[in-house]
Amino acid sequence: MLLELKNIKKQFKNNHVLKGIDLSVEKGEVIAIIGPSGSGKTTLLRNINFLETADSGSMLFREQQIDLAKPTKKQILWARRHMAMVFQNYNLFKNKTALKNISEGLVFGQNKSKTEADELACQALDQVGLLGKKDFYPSQLSGGQQQRIGIARATVLNPDIVLFDEPTSALDPELVGTVLHDMKTLADKGQTMIVVTHQMSFARNVASRVAFFSDGEILEEGRSDEIFDHPQHERTQQFLSAIAEDY
């Protein structure tokens, strides 16, 4: 087991956003998290990499046990340096070129030399066909290009797991395909990932398992064909039929 989450709870004021989440991820798995808006999907990802601190719960990651409510600074840094995240609105560093966006984490997160980092960043850009844009700033790139660089920035770090938070939701429809293509390539290479998504075709065809979130709980979880073809819960059925036109 690469990652095991146990009983994660999180509330904002009186709003119970996560009501005890358990989730296990094997190496090489692609987990899709689907569910209605406000059900706590983003919050779960942010608790895993400590952008938020859970009220309770634990995480077993690479055989290290971490109390999510009381992580030490060292544990936080260690965990983050073995994970990566891709944001819905890309969050590329606005003051860095495409190349530096990718190499920065190698230099400052992994102590690589600048030359080595730039070389790896060039390779990563080349793989997504954006080497020609290496000296462009984010403002000079399309949303699709920014997100593909966002993915390159995450994967160049060779993380054990990549967390995706609706990576295509902010994109124009015609740009979604290229980003999903990059993600599928990654999945085929065996990259472990947790993907929060509204792209049902991706969840169905690429993910090995799907977890359906509702109201701070995982209502249903299983192989993607099971969830899509035979959803057990009424809420899951409703959700899937409401967005049926998507897939």
Partner: peptide, 8 residues
Amino acid sequence: EAALVVGM
């Protein structure tokens, strides 16, 4: 947040 998640 992006800076933190790349390991800074």
